[in-house]
Design a protein around this nucleic acid. Structure first.
Lengths: 208, 208
DNA sequence: TGTACATCAGTGAACGCGCGTTCACTGATGTAC
DNA sequence: TGTACATCAGTGAACGCGCGTTCACTGATGTAC
């Protein structure tokens, strides 16, 4: 049985979520390092001082956004890598999943792409460490595959990083087509599929 | 014979360069979207109003920085791709060139990585369009190679994008090791080499 | 070469404005009995 | 169930400060004759 939160706690969580949502929306057209505390509270509709009941600073809020954004990605990564089928089917399915995720959470994807190399150190570090976790997860999935036989641990991890980076590149390409035509999106999908195919071929012949 | 600039023009260029240098230094710990005009003029040692003699806005200065940063990259890209030798030698040489470039121009590399997906639209667009030019250049170099026989134009361009993205990923990994140990840098180099190797293998078997 | 005027990079004062942070507060919710 | 006190999310006034932009200016450099 799950414990029901008190009214006070529930309201606090609701406000906190409103801060995260408002910040994410504001970050579509700027970077975290220029996001103002008052800007966020204004968007939420509370007094500036209310901010401090939830976060120490905008950098702190940024780290919370990393958890939210990349938390929602974990299931996707897992599904993407472990989907059944032959290589070609898996690639198509993976690109579809990425496209779908970008459709469903464009602001999260934009935030991660933007702040991965952004100007706020704690946020950058939170993203790097989460991406390293992704790579480890992907590595674990890849290691299960019969294709991984004879591969060194290091080489599997190398491939996992390649996949994770490729996933982010593809996601950020899809992001740019969000307001574009279906044609544009299809071209991005075809590009991504062929890049994944080339990597798969390299993988298949790695031990030749 | 080159025309010698008048004293006035020469001084103006010198000040302009001082703006670019100061901004680049300030951007090591923040994003362009939070860079202040007064911050830059203070670093240069001129009155705030002097800024307007050179740039309309910090976004405008950012676009000028893109030209400077990616201008210095063109020679490197060309050399990287067209270096002679067998595949393995070329890969090693390419990674060395990237490492060397990051050593020589760390602030430029950081700026491009940061603002490629950053919050300032005109700068983002300037970077995207320069990177597209890089991909076209790489495509042209790749097309000269006998290995490209039987490849469609689209597939060569696909591979070129893969190389360009891989180059940026590697550069930004090297950037993170700038204050690290030689060991760390060697590990990054080895990772990058093996990723390039896998892509090369995929390339070799693309038409199988 | 010298003079008289034009150009224009950089100045400095002034402006209104929004910023982050502090503080003592209020009133609804939670808790002990 | 009711009462008395504690907690604490959100308030609102106040602060000092740096911001971007305007404007008329200065004085060195450039140019026409």
């Amino acid at each position: 049985m799950s414990h029901t939160l008190g009214i006070r706690q529930a309201q606090k969580q609701k406000t906190r979520q409103a801060f995260l949502d408002a910040a994410l929306a504001l970050l579509e057209e700027q970077s975290l390092s220029s996001l103002g505390l008052r800007e966020v509270t204004r968007a939420v509709g509370v007094a500036p001082t209310a901010f401090y009941r939830h976060f120490r600073s905008t950098a702190d809020l940024g780290v919370a956004l990393v958890d939210e954004a990349l938390g929602s990605l974990h299931p996707m990564v897992r599904t993407t890598v472990s989907t059944a089928g032959d290589s070609e089917e898996r690639i198509t399915r993976a690109i579809e999943l990425i496209a779908h995720h970008v459709d469903a959470h464009p602001a999260h994807v934009r935030f991660i792409a933007r702040e991965r190399h952004g100007g706020v150190q704690p946020v950058r570090e939170a993203i790097q460490s989460q991406l390293a976790r992704f790579a480890e997860e992907v590595k674990a999935e890849l290691a299960k595959d019969p294709q991984a036989e004879g591969w060194s641990d290091d080489d599997v991890l190398m491939l996992a990083h390649l996949y994770v980076d490729q996933m982010l590149i593809t996601a950020s390409l899809f992001l740019e087509t969000l307001e574009g035509s279906t044609d544009e999106r299809e071209r991005v999908a075809q590009l991504a599929i062929r890049q994944m195919r080339l990597i798969s071929i390299g993988r298949r012949h790695w031990l030749d």
